[in-house]
Write a protein that binds this DNA or RNA. Structure first.
Lengths: 195, 195
DNA sequence: GATTTATCTGAACATGCGTTCAGATCAAAG
DNA sequence: CTTTGATCTGAACGCATGTTCAGATAAATC
């Protein structure tokens, strides 16, 4: 078993995923060829098949990794008992996490239709798991009487759409810093569900 | 000048655009071939070039028509002097207009990167024109003291993202009717900007 | 230094792409 | 009934696609 440590695959593998992430985000899955990805890595197209069985799986694994990271990072956050504090924590977490990974977010949003049905089901399930966490916070607040929300499910989707929308305009070196953005959105979120 | 009335082009032209709209929305611009569009219309691929100079222009014209319709429909709405009434009218209009054209909306958001730079600039300009209308309403409300909004530009984009998000889950025959949806979102929008 | 084997090259495969165009078709105009 | 010309077909163009694979390369092991 030669070349088990320090092998090129330890380097090339991540570079393939990075290149694919960047190119898929910029041009779209269908518009990017395996040769373009290979070119960005500095390798021939055939070599990519040491790292993925096919193009579709490459896309799926990028999205799967993103969703796993999202749920893991969320689980690592400190829990809040008060619904309003929990809502604020969720809002800040969501904005921060997504603003730092614009490419993965973009792909996970735009390329769902390019997944095979089985792969789509997996990603969709993870996404629902995440959404449910916000929904649960809203329901807690309603039960407690601190939130006035007509429909927790719809409201959670509305809030997530609003928060994810940050990625369409936010730029690291823009007019507003991330904490400022968090503040603006926290304000809106808090007021929009307050009793 | 034979066949100037009742010609096939009066029928085939719209059918080409309908087929392209539907296929682009379902599979994405890059993943749909001219032969697929032609097949959906019941014609050979070459015949499409009687109706568009190329595939890119076909996409552009779908998006341009959508944006023109949006601005025209918005302009036809009754004006409201009170900022809160105007905001509510905008919210209801946006949800209603977009829920009725899910395919065109989907394309106009997802396929921007497949436009040539010149075409992109045109569409982007129209989109900004629309966004500015909401921004103006917010600024009126702030000036009047009825709205508490930290940043009218950011807030307008946040609200539009939230409202457009309706299209990701709303189905004509779903649990909630369109008026019910409008009501839920109006509630959130009103509260989120209220002083 | 010989052997092993993970890694990569480079060419090939069938298939599909957007687009063009000469020629067929046929309804309306004269 | 002939002419006209808008409309469409069907084949062709060069090129790109995802994927495969025999063979070259070279680092790690013995």
């Amino acid at each position: 078993m030669a070349r088990t440590q320090g092998s090129h695959s330890d380097i090339t593998g991540p570079r393939v995923r990075e290149a694919a992430l960047s190119l898929f985000a910029r041009h779209g899955y269908a518009a990017v060829s395996m040769r373009q990805i290979a070119g960005a890595v500095g390798v021939q197209a055939g070599a990519l098949y040491n790292y993925t069985p096919d193009k579709q799986t490459l896309l799926y694994e990028l999205m799967k990794a993103h969703m796993d990271e999202l749920l893991a990072a969320r689980a690592a956050e400190p829990q809040q008992d008060d619904p309003m504090a929990a809502l604020e924590a969720f809002t800040r977490f969501h904005i921060r996490f997504h603003a730092r990974r614009p490419e993965a977010v973009f792909i996970s949003y735009m390329e769902l239709r390019n997944l095979s049905p089985e792969n789509f089901a997996v990603i969709e399930d993870l996404r629902k798991t995440y959404e449910t966490q916000l929904q649960d916070i809203l329901q807690c607040g309603v039960a407690e009487g601190s939130f006035a929300v007509r429909d927790a499910r719809i409201t959670s989707m509305a809030l997530i759409a609003m928060l994810t929308g940050v990625n369409t305009w936010f730029r690291e070196k823009g007019r507003l810093s991330l904490p400022e953005v968090e503040e603006i959105y926290c304000d809106m979120v808090r007021k929009s569900v307050a009793a």
